[in-house]
Write a protein that binds this DNA or RNA. Structure first.
Lengths: 115, 115
DNA sequence: CTGGATCCGATTTGATACTG
DNA sequence: CAGTATCAAATCGGATCCAG
């Protein structure tokens, strides 16, 4: 499998490419929270423990640029901004679900071994 | 979903936990190469483009500690060391396969859009 | 052949302050 | 309410050297 270049960035393999889009500490949690429908910025922030303001905004920006999330801003005062999954984002939920279930599986094994 | 603590380390969610075990740039490529059977250190190194000596050894060490890979060293001169997947490692291949196919899917979409 | 250790630059992340 | 900018801390990764 040769390298894959996009926007001047080199990806070593398909896993690398996929993880660049939905990987990192925060992208999957953000997508996962949006799976049931539209959410406002502050809602997402409250729903994800530990995430900082900076991390949430940068991750949302990247997910928007890569087409996983749609951002709709209402020009009101104070501002109101809504985020929803695009079809591409909905597709990602399938993958996240697999990884999530696998994580639960590993956690169970780990728990069992502690006794 | 509350935090999950193991070995003094805090995991925020099941995805976080799973990715700590098989995530990062190199763990999945290493496991993937081992899917067909036993390999020696240098074989793996040659099979994975770009990986450095340091990264391969540290990732193999971690995969061994977490039970994904078994290491067998033959006390010969020069040394000969063989790596194989454990059942836990074999199980991980299923997940990697899903992520890998998803990556291929995203890469196709991206290629189509470039024209 | 395989592995460990060190140094150092690059990248990522968090805390904080400021804005309309 | 939502977003941007800046700075510092932490983590990660590569190059290199030494060893059994």
């Amino acid at each position: 499998m040769p390298d894959f270049v996009e926007n001047g960035r080199v990806y070593y393999n398909p896993v690398d490419y996929a993880m660049h889009h939905i990987g990192g500490t925060w992208k999957m949690p953000v997508l996962w929270r949006l799976r049931k429908g539209v959410m406002r910025y502050t809602e997402i922030k409250k729903a994800i423990p530990h995430i900082t303001h900076k991390m949430l905004t940068t991750q949302l920006r990247e997910l928007e640029e890569t087409g996983f999330v749609q951002r709709v801003a209402y020009p009101t005062v104070p501002p109101k901004v809504e985020y929803t999954l695009t079809p591409k984002g909905v597709r990602a939920i399938d993958i996240i679900n697999v990884i999530r279930n696998y994580g639960l599986e590993l956690m169970e094994e780990a728990n069992l071994k502690e006794h």
